[in-house]
Design a protein around this nucleic acid. Structure first.
Length: 718
RNA sequence: GCACGCUUAGCUCAGUUGGUAGAGCAACCCGUUUACACCGGGUAGGUCGCAGGUUCGAGUCCUGCAGCGUGCACCA
């Protein structure tokens, strides 16, 4: 018996060397996997299994959520590899446009007191790129540390050259199909991040607000209510419900009223179904430039638009004497004016949901802007005249994609039903610049638009001044292509043919809409197939009290620290056990410690077994019992009950094998062969869950020369 | 407002198709008789949120209610 078994299992002394062994073997790359046993002897691996790693953002370091994701995926991948599949797990990182840019902006502001405009686009991007590179290197090391058997030779980045080609090609095809368009409309403007964001990037926060009821002037016949008096400077109409008897006589009339800041409002009374006659006064002051709903009323009724708030959340010149005031100052000024004029009728405190930007926390200012959108309702000729919305819905409804746990299917449909066009342009610098060029005259009017990544041809270039659209694409546009951009698309590569659609997409339920849905959209349109067959959604890892881990709470458990203390195997098990898909799990250091003990238990079981002679026959009843366990575990794996498989193995090995079978075998040499049978096969079953300790033990098993990683899964009929 | 989920031992959670409750940690007692003190043996601890229903039988299925949480929508 090797001396190492005389001491307790020491993960920190073992894991790095084991990972190197795996990587040097080349077996993380499916092209190098050895043949498998088939009915006709050794044969090629014909079935494929592929996963793309949800690319971590290059915004810093990995947290426990990433560690959980790596654990689940590595378990699936190692299991399938052992079952003889041609198995690919493709790693990569995400440039995470807004998230990374705002992180670097913050750092620079703190260290140098400068903003990005002080540095200029080129210098700023250099800094972000440098930061992204450092984050990438950290992340890669962390991924290794967790034991992830990813194929590094295929590593990708959402902002590298092959992905850039894919992004431009996707944009072009969608543009040519009429799915991408440029439109002027109310968008979610984040004054803090100085960019537009999509509906999904807004988060509603409940706050108390004052609802002011007032009249524009003494002569105005209708009172209205608002929580944002400053926007009333941009009102061009009052809308009432068409069936509201109180106001019917006024519909169609136009009034002028002197208003705060020395302005004059021109207000038309219109009727619109969307007005709720029971809320407030039943009449809505219409501000077309600063509200989604009002914009639509304005479109229907051909109302003019007056923008009174700008990109810095300050009042515009249209606000007269209030110009340049911050929104909140203007609000107070308008209220003071109304009060002074005796127009303010009521102030109520109400609860209100206010939209904020997910990344920066800025309060969203709805503004009219010219932006790029993806039309989700437009029929797509090449896809049976179905809209993107319909294609997304059908991918799941038809069963081509299954979601685990299935309750998320309902959530997915619900999201699709409420989906509006996806705003894909961002006014930030870090990301894929929009591949559109404009030829402009001296006044800046667009004479010609060209969709082409490389810019105008040399012949075209002589026709005038061309400028590329300065905006960048939403980061989810590029990550939406991830399952196939990583496999070489738009080239018809062998990888693309072999590994797409991918088998499983494993990710957190919190990015179901951001990412999972967008991948389905992109793949359905660009490839005409689903991006993956199964979606496995894991929950959030919370602290022992069930709180989200955050810097401000100081309750972050660093996976690297835990790995150093207890070993990657223990950390992996602690993140798997009791973590049913879609459910949040709570983690404490105690639990991790418990699984470290389990790794040592296996170590000691091995120590005992290796001290026994390999004699006697395998006892049939114990073999049957073990095989039943193996079958059960295999079934759980097939049905994505990873946590149950792990738990069964844990209990069998500790409570049955160690506590009973081994005890019973003491002093009975004829148990030898049985003990070896159970140990060897247990190591195989356990390997996906605890790859390091099992591989280390395997290397000391008599007669075993190869890597456990590519051993075949115990053959049992399921 | 619409939808979804959770509620099981002091704490954190399992409990796959219905068959009279399980684990880890914590607590208490005992034990170093050689695989393992990163251990072993034992004790204590639960009317499975509440109220009904289906069933021979319900933690598990159905209905209602309550508390907590989440997603979506949103009123100006």
């Amino acid at each position: 018996m090797p001396d190492k078994f005389l001491k307790p299992y020491d993960a920190s002394a073992t894991e790095a060397a084991i990972y190197k062994k795996w990587q040097d073997s080349g077996y993380f790359n499916p092209d190098n996997l050895p043949p498998i046993d088939t009915a006709e002897g050794k044969g090629e691996r014909t079935e494929t299994f592929s996963i793309v790693l949800p690319p971590p953002n290059v915004t810093g370091t990995l947290h426990l959520g990433h560690a959980a994701m790596l654990a689940v995926e590595d378990i699936l991948v190692r299991y399938k590899r052992m079952r003889g599949f041609k198995t690919l797990w493709l790693p990569g990182t995400d440039h995470a446009a807004i998230a990374t840019q705002s992180k670097v902006e913050k750092d620079i502001q703190k260290a140098e007191g400068k903003n990005r405009h002080d540095l200029g686009r080129e210098e700023f991007l250099k800094r972000v790129t440098q930061f992204a590179k450092e984050s990438h290197d950290t992340i890669v090391n962390q991924v290794r540390r967790m034991g992830a058997s990813v194929d590094w030779s295929r590593e990708a980045y959402t902002l590298d050259e092959p992905r850039r080609r894919a992004v431009f090609e996707a944009f072009k095809r969608m543009f040519d199909a009429g799915l991408i368009y440029r439109g002027h409309r109310i968008v979610n403007w984040d004054p803090k991040g100085q960019t537009v964001i999509s509906d999904d990037e807004t988060v509603y926060e409940e706050r108390e607000a004052k609802l002011y009821t007032f009249k524009y002037s003494k002569d105005f016949p209708i009172s209205i209510a608002t929580t944002r008096p400053e926007t009333k400077l941009g009102d061009t109409a009052v809308a009432v419900h068409p069936g509201d008897a109180r106001y019917q006589g006024f519909v169609g009339q136009t009034f002028t009223a002197p208003f705060a800041g020395g302005t004059t409002l021109t207000i038309k009374i219109v009727a619109d179904e969307s007005v709720d006659p029971t809320f407030g006064t039943g009449a809505l002051g219409v501000t077309p430039a600063h509200s989604h709903q009002d914009w639509e009323i304005a479109q229907k009724n051909d109302l003019p638009l007056v923008q009174v708030i700008n990109e810095y959340a300050r009042m515009t010149k249209a606000a007269g004497g209030l110009a340049d005031k911050k929104v909140l100052e203007a609000r107070e000024a308008v209220v003071a004016w109304l009060r002074a004029q005796g127009l303010l009728e009521k102030e109520d405190v109400i609860k209100q949901n206010i939209a904020t930007a997910e990344r920066t926390g800025g309060i969203i200012e709805p503004l009219p802007k010219l932006q790029w959108f993806i039309d989700v309702n437009q029929p797509v000729a090449a896809r049976g005249n179905k809209s993107l919305k319909e294609l997304m819905r059908e991918a799941v409804a038809s069963g081509s994609i299954t979601i685990t746990p299935d309750r998320f299917e309902k959530i997915y449909y619900h999201w699709i039903d409420n989906l509006r066009d996806w705003c894909i342009s961002r006014q930030i610098w870090f990301g894929h610049q929009i591949p559109v060029w404009y030829r402009k005259d001296e006044k800046g009017n667009v004479l010609e638009t060209l969709v082409n990544a490389a810019g105008p041809s040399s012949a075209k270039a002589t026709e005038g001044t061309w400028e590329q659209d300065p905006d960048t694409l939403d980061t989810w546009f590029s990550s939406g292509l991830w399952t196939f951009s990583t496999l070489g698309w738009p080239e018809e590569t062998p990888d693309l043919k072999t590994f797409h659609p991918t088998s499983v997409l494993e990710t957190g339920y919190d990015i179901l809409f951001f990412w999972v849905a967008r991948m389905i959209l992109m793949s359905e349109f660009l490839l005409g197939e689903v991006p993956f067959k199964n979606v496995y959604l894991h929950g959030l890892v919370r602290d022992e009290k069930g709180r989200k881990m955050s810097k401000s709470l100081g309750n972050i458990i660093d996976p690297l620290v835990m790995t150093e203390k207890y070993g990657a195997d223990a950390v992996r098990l602690s993140l798997i056990m009791g973590a049913a898909p879609g459910n949040d799990s709570k983690l404490s250091e105690d639990r991790i410690r418990g699984y470290k003990n389990f790794a040592n238990k296996i170590w000691n079981i091995t120590r005992f077994v290796l001290s026994q002679e390999r004699v006697g026959e395998i006892k049939p009843e114990l073999k049957d019992e073990f095989d039943a366990l193996a079958r059960d575990v295999t079934k759980d794996m097939e049905e994505y009950r990873i946590y149950m498989a792990a738990e069964k193995l844990y209990h069998y090995l500790w409570d049955r094998f160690a506590a009973q079978i081994i005890e019973e075998s003491k002093g009975k040499p004829e148990y030898g062969e049985t003990l070896y049978y159970i140990l060897e096969n247990s190591l195989k079953l356990l390997h996906p869950f605890m790859p390091f300790v099992t591989e280390e033990i395997w290397s000391s098993m008599p007669g075993k020369s190869g890597l456990l990683m590519i051993e075949e899964w115990p053959k049992i009929s399921v």
